[in-house]
Amino acid sequence: MSEAMQPAIELVALEKRFGANQVLRGIDLRVSPGEVVCLIGPSGSGKSTLLRCVNRLEEPTGGRVLIDGENICATDCDLDRVRTKIGMVFQQFNLFPHLCVLDNLTIAQRKVLGRSKEQAEAKAHAVLERVGLAEKLHEYPSRLSGGQQQRVAIARALAMDPRMMLFDEATSALDPELVGEVLNVMRSLAEDGMTMMVVTHEMGFARQVADGVVFMDAGVIVEQGHPDEVLGSPRHERTQRFLQRVLAR
């Protein structure tokens, strides 16, 4: 984590409140370019909300989000343009069921980035190859397994040539035997230097792949650091208890 580099993602005093319920209570976090940060914590700790604030799918009620140094909470910020730089992968895949895989991958390239049909399709081929599903080009999402659907969803995000990727519990909705194929794609992305924020329950993945692990509880960051520290020898009692429960399963 080099301090000199401008962070790809920087959260400053971020707050999010749903009515009387304060979900995020002042979060400060920096993610450097090429860094992989895993967010862990009990359910309801605010980690998914935090991730969704990074591309403002969730509107922060306080603080700032800076993407490549640009404050995307500013009123004059072109949010749609910023979002093309931030790929997002959802727990429920959210592929477009009325479009075949190819169209899922090309629609935003063409309508948002203005790429030609040929450019968009060439890109779609390349990213599908990358997630190992080149032969599924003309299938509809409903004909694919959960793991395949999630890999297509990753490919759809990659087709936009994003500068960073957000993963919101990308493997939580998958049957256990399908988790591996998705984690492998995520691992290879990390190895290629993609900036990633990953909300996950996969402690093995966090330990092996992450550059930094952030443990959240009750809307605050309790502890963060190298995976060996946070996962291997957690300093805070709340982290210790959480890890005991998770690893005991």
Partner: peptide, 17 residues
Amino acid sequence: PKGQMEAARSLGMSHAR
């Protein structure tokens, strides 16, 4: 499902698009 709108927005589409 709400996720459809969210996925489309996360790809940079405007609300109308």
